[in-house]
Design a binder for these strands. Sequence first.
RNA 1: GGUCCUUUCGUCUAGAGGCUAGGACGCAAGAUUUUCAUUCUUGUAACACGGGUUCGAUUCCCGUAGGGACUACCA
Length: 508
Amino acid sequence: MREVRVRFAPSPTGALHLGGVRTALFNYLFARKHNGKFILRIEDTDQTRFVPGAEEYIIKSLAWIGLDIDESDIVGGEYGPYKQSNRKHLYTKYAQQLVNDGFAYYAFDTPEDLEVMRKDLEAKKSSIQSYGPATRMSMKNSLTLGEEKTKQLLDENVPYVIRFKMPENEKLVLKDIIRGEIKADTSLLDDKVLYKSDGMPTYHLANIVDDHLMKISHVIRGEEWLPSLPLHYLLYRSFGWLDTMPEFAHLPLILKPDGKGKLSKRDGDRLGFPVFPLHWEDPKTGEVSKGYEEAGYFPEAFLNMMALLGWNPGNNSTQEIFTKEELCKIFTLENVHKAGSKFDPEKNKWFNKQYLELKPNEELAEYFIEDAKKDGVTVDKAKAAKLCGLVKDRCHFSHDLWKESKYFFVAPTEYNEANKKKFWKPESEDLMNKSIEILKQTEDFSSKNLENIFTDWINNNQLSFGKVLNPMRLLLAGECKGPHIFDILEELGKEESIRRIETGIKNI
RNA sequence: GGUCCUUUCGUCUAGAGGCUAGGACGCAAGAUUUUCAUUCUUGUAACACGGGUUCGAUUCCCGUAGGGACUACCA
């Protein structure tokens, strides 16, 4: 195989969505697997859709997931610049070349002209509804106008575009790594604009020119590009670049969790899950979107779950938890599933939990400390790590760690009604008063010792654990959930434990 | 409408002519338990349909139906 060079080529038109993340990830994994290069190219040829901050967002997102870039405007590289608006001059030359070689032509039709053509075709119920082999000879272009008239219009600075001259009656059979053979009939295709009247290339031209100049070996992109594959192939052919044309792989789309269609930002809002990796505020609309990071997902978990959406290790493997390094070793495009996959936020929760449990408490403590700080509580690392160990079983997200531990630092002011109804019995007050006496007499406030003392007391007096410990938990924490109660007592300490039970008896 | 892609449990998927169609999420039940969880066990549930090819099709071929994408001087 030739040197692997792949690119992730987003448009800076907004936040990087999940589809884009996965495309980037699969490009990255493929590059690493083959010791190749992962290149970031910014495709900003549409000036009207440019969104300030989007490019920075994309770069930050890739960094969060841990996809290190080998070539880009920031890290450098010998094929730069890597932003298409800075490569504008290149495309003019290549568009010109296609015209000179007879593969493309000038078109002077106004938007109104095009509108008329479409209406006309629609009225005739024609199956062909575009500017192409069947219609081009009735339009205003260098093919119909002749050389002299064309030159005159160009000299007069009449706005023009350059369109690809789609050949007629060619049956193409193209290769896609994931899908196998893709068939196309050029007579059904249209004459796409390659060069816009504002002097910018369209995606089609810029993409082929840049992939060629940057020596891209494999184009791994979303399925929405599959219909453009014949055009792209024909462009390579027209330029005479077929011998170095990259191989193509079109990734299946990520679909809505319910219902039909492509996953959109709306779905995330509607169903309550993030669709962007990081926090995003749209500078035009002011709309704010939560990201996976602030929702408490770990980047490793996020990467893992994105990798398994449409890809699997194959070979009867049932492994689901993979580090980035493992994925770099075993990833293959052949194991990418062909059909689109519905996004499953529930499974993502599970993935994150797996990672949370795998992480050492010292690492979790960092998240804990930060969240505590936001609530005005300062915790040292040792204590934070200890508490993380106590509560992690019940957590799915990093923020749950502090949420589930908050009562260690803030005494309850109210008590869960349902728990109260279930566990606070007429005899509870008496038992709590007796418990206070026991706690007061206990010097060694370790979890182990407390457990021994209470076990003896309960057994010796024919009491049940539930009758004593549930009300106590309710008074200590405000609700009946959480870790081993003697761990809670140890953590709170003698004084605070007694104080909570005392005030609890009064306030409940 | 046209073109192309696609189709295994509710969801993500394994499977590459012969299997009790496997795993995971979810859901349900049970076990553990002082609570909530965790964990463990068990269960639930799928080859879209119709034709071929074949001794034999989930698997290969052709239709049909469903789903998706594209059909801009957007990417």
